[in-house]
Amino acid sequence: MFSNLAIDVALGLIFIYLLYSLLASVVQELVARIFNSRARLLTKGLRRMLEEDDHSKDLGWFGKFTFFNWFYELGWSVVYFFEPFRKNPFLKKFYSTPSIRNLGENSATSRPAYISPQIFSQTMVHLLRGSVQEHKGTDAQAIKAALTHNYLHLVPDTREHLLQLFEDAGHNTAAFRINMEGWFNETMTRASGWYRKQTQTWLLCMGIAIAALFNVDSIAIARILMKDKNVRSQMVQLAASRAPGYTAITDTLIRKNVLHKDSAFFRADTSVRILVSDTSLLGVYALLRADAGDAANVLGISRACVTDTTGGHMTMHCGYTHPFQQNGWLVFAGWCITALAISLGAPFWFDLLGKVVKFRTTQPPADTPGNNTTATH
């Protein structure tokens, strides 16, 4: 069996990163459920489609710089968190229609986390058609009148885009719906990118907090694994015993929480909700928390308070017990490395762990007589 110091150290570090990445993902999922993050991001995508949502012009000359825009948009995100339909009458009307309102789970999560393209286009047609007083003509005539006279008070850009889509459809209602569904899918593809970016930011922030809370010092862990053969062996055994159980967690909690083929956005009726309930999610957290404790015990990294009676006075000193954690700056650097590793996500470390384990357990090719011969002159 092929094994050496570098491979075992790498295996131990990868297992630690996988373990805490999964822990961060579980916490992030719990936070997302508490704050209904997916539904809020879907609302943001629809706001960009149906209402004017570009606040950079409010900054004037400063709006040209990403730095100022980021903080300004962050402020608006807080505003929209409490007032999702602020200055967005059409968006509020859109969510008030029965076809959208009835998709909400309950009063606490009244806005759905997923809307199919077909429901979106159907709702838009209903709103446009219903805005025409005493409609007696065809649906196409009603839609044309609604857009021409702007009965719904759409912002200029949205109204102009819908008019162009209607003209591209040749004033055919069915074709117009298909065009709107394509527009919806394209916008939701962008929204899924926003969610991934938001998730990675959350993982980085949680990674820093988790690294500090659990004292996951990458530098100290690497030094321990390189110096202590017994710890290295125990960590490899722990990784081999726990990794198979993480397969279901990674595939269920992370990989299947993906985009739906119809809308390129998150479905509320699949992903975690159907596979992991809130109670089960807490159970997964408890399991990972226990594994984190086992890993910490193997590594011997912990915090403790020591009583010092030197000089006849009793004083209490609290800090790190391991000799590899005596430099505070190195400890902080080790936490930062861990946080960056966690931000890469559990699937990355899970796949890498599988490759390293496979490489480690691969038998080297047997030597053949031809390989042992030396050239003679």
Rank of each mutant, 00 (worst) to 15 (best):
A240V: 09
T279N: 11
N185E: 08
H171G: 00
D8F: 03
R159Y: 02
A145R: 14
H126F: 10
Y72S: 06
I254K: 07
S77Y: 11
I221F: 00
P156T: 09
L287A: 11
R111I: 03
T189E: 09
E29S: 13
H126Q: 15
V298L: 09
Q118K: 14
T189M: 11
H149D: 12
F2C: 08
L22G: 04
S77P: 00
Y246H: 15
S3P: 00
F68D: 08
I224S: 08
S271Y: 08
I221C: 04
G300A: 12
F62C: 07
L91Q: 04
V216H: 03
Q325T: 02
G354L: 07
I100S: 13
K44Q: 05
P365Q: 14
Y151N: 15
T321N: 13
V125A: 08
D53Q: 14
I301A: 07
V155N: 12
L46C: 05
L46I: 05
G170R: 06
D291C: 04
V276P: 03
R159G: 04
E73Y: 14
G245S: 13
F324N: 15
A264S: 14
T368L: 07
W70A: 06
P117L: 13
D308I: 00
L340Y: 05
F176R: 06
I143Q: 01
V231Y: 01
T368Y: 01
W335E: 03
G311F: 02
A222Y: 12
A113V: 13
F35A: 07
W335I: 08
A10P: 00
I342M: 04
D8A: 08
N185W: 11
Y246Q: 05
A222K: 10
L30Q: 10
Q237G: 15
R232F: 01
L13F: 00
L50Y: 09
N327A: 13
E29Q: 13
L330S: 09
D54V: 10
D269M: 09
C318M: 02
L59D: 06
L91C: 02
L299G: 05
I337C: 01
L225A: 06
